[in-house]
Nucleic acid binder design. Structure first.
Length: 485
RNA sequence: GGGCCGUUAGCUCAGCCGGUAGAGCACCGGCCUUUUAAGCCGGGUGUCGCAGGUUCGAAUCCUGCACGGCUCACCA
């Protein structure tokens, strides 16, 4: 007989005997960790604890079981003397690993020194019908781990810590920004024009409105509308959706922090960003230096700063302006064995070379500032050079973590940039920015000078939890659906 | 989308120069009142990812497909 059927049989018998295998509540007095931390005060006292039975060790007329609650494991001692014959037989007959139980008993320490609850009463709170994964090796099959994250969490307790840490990271960011007077807002996920980034959107349809809507690729244009409306410090931490490839650093839905600060330029945002990142790291990690694989990453501010042009020329050993000659640029690609699958435009070539020759080398947080205007349709031109914009990105361990700029607030300039993006789109560049006339209109009412910032929360969490795949820091990462039988 | 690798019991895995499936844990039965990957005795519970092909015979060889991982491409 299959294990599940055996348990179904027990379930039936329990019901016949008048027990409820799916109880309504249990009033526990302590969690596992509280029992252990307060052992000195609790020794000999009666407590009520509850949790999932994760292992059982039978010794005839006495047994040990280990239960687990969210705070950790706790050993329970069950002896026929203290539990009574009836309750002990009930335990032996009906309690399986995986079940949730409530225990009343006194706290003591075993011969081997383990803090344990000596049970006077044990009751079943929830019957588990499916057997637990193996207790020693856990679940290693990553497909099962992601599809059935609940099993991963049960079998691999360390996984809980990743997500507790993720929660703490986000909380710390919120606390930091709130303390500076930032207001958290929520802007539309469903947008009629997907803007604020260059990416392919998901398209959906609203029946009542009888129109297409797009899942947002960024909240940027809405947050800047709020700056027009009078907000001076706003942020949003929420999901973006991009209909693009999946990889160890890309999930179709991912979490982004975007913030906007009125009257600031990108230099001020630079300082804000390095203070934010480094103080989050310090408060989570108790040190600016974190271990990451074989490497150590040092978040102590100030971060290294290097201009796009400077690092580009250093790595390519060529004058940047020569790449404006597309012939030269393509020769360079050929010489360096870099494949370009996109259209051979200045923007794409530069982007490709940056990715191949520059980006991958950064380990410690590095600020790359002043980008070519062609790559940045929403950023303000440099005050002394129209070919460049006031924008910076922060790279950590070869991964882009942050992107920021002095926000373009000249509606006429913004209109021109949109128009040139539209031209690219008409030429077949699917990732070009959409034209958003309502946003232009908003800018025409006047947006004060503003600095903006985006931080990829998942990627930042990867760095802080020492994980190489974004799927390890997203509870339910996107996988292809499996045909159900 | 390309390349490489993987998919066998509930879990972790072995078996793969073709001969009809195995271990540990889990589970079931028995013994055991301080164990903790408890122990001792007994028990194998399976659509070998799916579909074809080759063969007397396929978990094993071949082809296709599905799902996953890594990687390249794409892309914040």
């Amino acid at each position: 007989m299959e294990e599940r059927e055996i348990r179904l049989q027990k379930l039936k018998e329990l019901k016949e005997k008048g027990y409820n295998p799916f109880e309504y509540r249990f009033d526990r007095t302590h969690t596992s960790i509280e029992i252990k931390k307060s052992f000195n005060e609790l020794e000999g006292k009666e407590v009520k604890v509850s949790g999932r039975v994760i292992s059982e060790r039978f010794h005839g007329k006495a047994s040990f079981i280990t239960i687990r609650d969210f705070t950790g494991n706790l050993q329970i001692y069950l002896s026929i003397n203290n539990l009574g014959e009836e309750n002990y037989e009930f335990f032996k007959k009906f309690i399986d690993t995986g079940d949730f139980v409530g225990v009343t008993g006194t706290v003591f320490k075993t011969h081997t020194g383990e803090i344990t609850v000596d049970a006077k009463k044990l009751s079943l709170l929830t019957k588990s019908l499916s057997p637990l994964p193996e207790k020693y090796h856990g679940i290693k099959d990553v497909e099962v781990r992601y599809r059935k994250r609940y099993l991963d969490l049960i079998a691999n307790p360390d996984v809980i810590n990743i997500f507790v840490k993720r929660s703490l990271i986000i909380k710390t960011i919120r606390d930091y920004l709130n303390s500076l007077g930032f207001i958290e807002v929520e802007t539309p996920m469903l947008q009629s024009i997907p803007g604020g980034a260059t990416a392919k959107p998901f398209i959906t349809f609203h029946n009542a409105l009888n129109q297409n809507l797009y899942l947002r690729i960024a909240p940027e244009l809405y947050l800047k509308r709020l700056i027009v409306g009078g907000f001076e410090k706003v942020y949003e931490i929420n999901r973006n959706f991009r209909n693009e490839g999946i990889s160890t650093i890309h999930n179709p839905e991912f979490t982004m922090l975007e913030l906007y600060l009125a009257y600031a330029d990108y230099k001020e945002i630079m300082v804000l960003t390095e203070n934010l990142l480094s103080s989050v790291v310090f408060s989570i990690n108790n040190s600016y230096v974190i271990k990451n694989g074989e490497d150590e990453i040092n978040f102590e501010p100030p971060f290294k700063r290097v201009s796009f042009r400077e690092i580009f020329e250093e790595k390519t050993k060529e004058n940047f302006d020569r790449f404006r000659d597309i012939g030269f640029a393509l020769d360079f690609l050929k010489k360096e064995n870099i494949e370009l699958t996109r259209k051979p435009t200045f923007k794409n070539v530069i982007d490709e070379i940056f990715k191949e020759k520059v980006e991958k080398d950064f380990l410690n947080p590095t600020i790359v500032y002043d980008f070519p205007i062609e790559m940045s349709p929403l950023a303000k031109k440099k005050r002394d050079d129209e070919k460049w914009v006031e924008r910076f990105e922060i790279f950590i361990k070869g991964i882009e973590i942050a992107n920021a700029f002095s926000e373009l607030n000249d509606p006429l300039d913004q209109k021109e940039r949109f128009l040139s993006e539209v031209k690219e789109k008409e030429k077949g560049d699917e990732e070009s920015h959409y034209f958003d006339s309502d946003y232009i209109e908003a800018l025409e009412y006047g947006m004060p000078p503003t600095g903006g910032l985006g931080i990829g929360i998942d990627r930042f969490t990867m760095i802080l939890t020492d994980k190489d795949s974004i799927r390890e820091v997203i509870l339910f990462p996107q996988l292809r659906s499996k045909e159900e039988d």
